[in-house]
Simulated scan of single mutants.
Amino acid sequence: MRIKMGTGVPEKGTMVQLRPETVGYRGALAMALRLELGSTHRAIKTARRWTGASERTVKHRFAGKRRPSGELLIQLARHSDMVFHMVLIGAGRYDDADPEMR
């Protein structure tokens, strides 16, 4: 019997873990989401409400494995101050950010 590798998606209740090798935009977005919302199932539900994305998609964002489209990034930034400031910092516009966040 042959086992297929890499094609299955974990069950709904599992949390995708943030890996140390994740850096850059995806890692910064994951960190911003976790700082703003935490890493509970309630945080996943909140991010789902903000974007309308599936649970699996949101879990991948929290883990830094996937990045949102531009439209969904704007929706996240609309609701999350941490994501908004991450976008400003990533764009080199940190001076435009709220002075309290420095």
Results as ranks from 00 to 15, higher is better:
residue 7 T to D: 06
residue 73 L to E: 10
residue 80 S to W: 04
residue 9 V to L: 07
residue 2 R to I: 12
residue 50 W to N: 01
residue 42 R to W: 04
residue 27 G to W: 03
residue 76 L to S: 01
residue 19 R to Q: 14
residue 87 V to H: 07
residue 77 A to G: 03
residue 4 K to T: 13
residue 23 V to R: 09
residue 78 R to V: 03
residue 6 G to L: 03
residue 74 I to Y: 08
residue 76 L to T: 00
residue 13 G to E: 12
residue 26 R to C: 10
residue 7 T to C: 07
residue 90 G to I: 01
residue 36 E to P: 00
residue 67 R to F: 14
residue 94 Y to F: 05
residue 60 H to M: 15
residue 80 S to F: 03
residue 31 M to W: 05
residue 91 A to K: 13
residue 39 S to R: 08
residue 79 H to M: 06
residue 52 G to T: 07
residue 76 L to P: 00
residue 15 M to I: 07
residue 98 D to P: 09
residue 66 R to E: 13
residue 58 V to P: 00
residue 79 H to S: 07
residue 62 F to H: 00
residue 21 E to Q: 10
residue 31 M to L: 15
residue 68 P to V: 06
residue 4 K to Q: 09
residue 81 D to C: 04
residue 42 R to K: 10
residue 80 S to E: 04
residue 63 A to K: 01
residue 39 S to E: 14
residue 24 G to L: 04
residue 8 G to Q: 11
residue 50 W to H: 06
residue 13 G to A: 08
residue 65 K to C: 09
residue 22 T to Q: 03
residue 68 P to C: 07
residue 73 L to A: 11
residue 75 Q to A: 10
residue 45 K to N: 10
residue 54 S to A: 08
residue 99 P to M: 04
residue 6 G to E: 05
residue 4 K to R: 12
residue 14 T to K: 08
residue 19 R to Y: 06
residue 86 M to F: 06
residue 102 R to C: 08
residue 93 R to A: 14
residue 69 S to H: 05
residue 40 T to L: 05
residue 48 R to I: 15
residue 4 K to N: 09
residue 69 S to G: 10
residue 65 K to I: 15
residue 18 L to T: 08
residue 14 T to S: 09
residue 19 R to E: 14
residue 38 G to K: 04
residue 43 A to P: 00
residue 53 A to I: 05
residue 11 E to L: 02
residue 75 Q to W: 01
residue 59 K to C: 07
residue 55 E to T: 12
residue 100 E to H: 12
residue 67 R to D: 14
residue 8 G to S: 13
residue 66 R to P: 00
residue 63 A to V: 12
